[in-house]
């Protein structure tokens, strides 16, 4: 039983850190621009395809391929913000519809370019690692380690850099930030790029774990949504706690009672969170 429990927690944590990456980008974009970015899953998909092309098609080493994919998805996010979202910032409903339209366009584009087949991406490491009585695939451990490095880098970026400080200032009070010389347009673009990079990183990391196909972003997007509702929309610590919690809860219920019950529980938790604490675990009360 101890071995099974340990296995459940390890499975949950390795899944949870990827949920955290997805949710952080999603909640960052919402926190700063009030955009519910339904295209976030497609940025995850773009990261996965980018790493598959770079490491599979062009035979790049895996880490440079991940970094390049993250940068490419960041640039895609910045372009989307400058060309499209900047025109409707302030109107949450229009932003939501625009995000849905972008999501469908990106899916269709991937379908035209890559086709509907599920593609396997090269794996950076193979084999398994034994942690006491539990077993963890080496590639998942690699994903978990890189994700933690990225989370630390993101924390340092937000708290120790001038751009991060400006982002937090805009998220807290955009008018006051503007009065102090912060240019909201620039911050919006930067935040969208950083949020996209986090989604791209999650996609690039998970590509070798799963298969890559145009609709692969739908489920992670749904998970990101659950995590931010659970943790508090716009709350970065909430995204971390929510992501890890969801990963472990899903792992436990899927192992003990099956994936159908796990999906049911995930959404039941969201319903309960909305009913009991609408602002989420770490969100601010409006």
């Amino acid at each position: 039983m101890l071995a099974l429990s340990l296995q459940i927690v390890l499975n949950g944590l390795t899944t949870g850190v990827v949920y955290v990456l997805m949710a952080l980008g999603f909640t960052l974009i919402f926190g700063i621009m009030r955009v519910v970015n339904f295209a976030h899953g497609e940025l995850y998909m773009a990261g996965a395809f980018a790493v598959t092309v770079l490491s599979g098609g062009l035979s790049w080493p895996h880490l440079p391929a991940i970094l390049a994919s993250v940068v490419l998805v960041g640039l895609l996010g910045a372009a989307l913000q400058r060309l499209l979202f900047s025109r409707v910032i302030g109107n949450e409903f229009n932003c939501m519809i625009l995000a849905l339209a972008v999501s469908i366009c990106l899916q269709s584009l991937a379908l035209i370019v890559f086709g509907p087949d599920e593609i396997g991406a090269p794996r950076p490491v193979t084999g398994v690692v034994h942690l006491g009585p539990a077993v963890i695939p080496a590639d998942r451990l690699f994903v978990g380690a890189v994700a933690i490095v990225l989370l630390v880098a993101f924390y340092l970026f937000l708290n120790k850099t001038r751009l991060g400080l400006m982002m937090r200032a805009v998220a807290q009070d955009p008018e006051m930030a503007a009065l102090h010389g912060v240019r909201p347009n620039l911050i919006h673009t930067a935040a969208f790029a950083v949020g996209s990079m986090l989604a791209g990183a999650a996609g690039a990391l998970m590509a070798p774990i799963y298969t890559v196909f145009p609709y692969m972003g739908e489920l992670p997007m749904m998970k990101a949504f659950i995590v931010v509702v659970l943790g508090g929309l716009g709350s970065l610590p909430g995204a971390v706690i929510g992501g890890l919690m969801l990963g472990i809860v899903e792992s436990a219920f899927a192992t003990m009672l099956g994936s159908t019950v796990a999906a049911l529980v995930a959404f039941a938790v969201v319903v309960a969170a909305i009913a009991v604490r609408p602002e989420g675990l770490m969100g601010r009360r409006a």
Partner: peptide, 20 residues
């Protein structure tokens, strides 16, 4: 015996149970 939802991509939890 395990039944999974078609949207699932992570089979580790159900496999953990079955392999036990």
């Amino acid at each position: 015996k395990e039944l999974y939802e078609r949207s699932v991509r992570d089979y580790i939890p159900i496999l953990t149970k079955l392999l036990a």
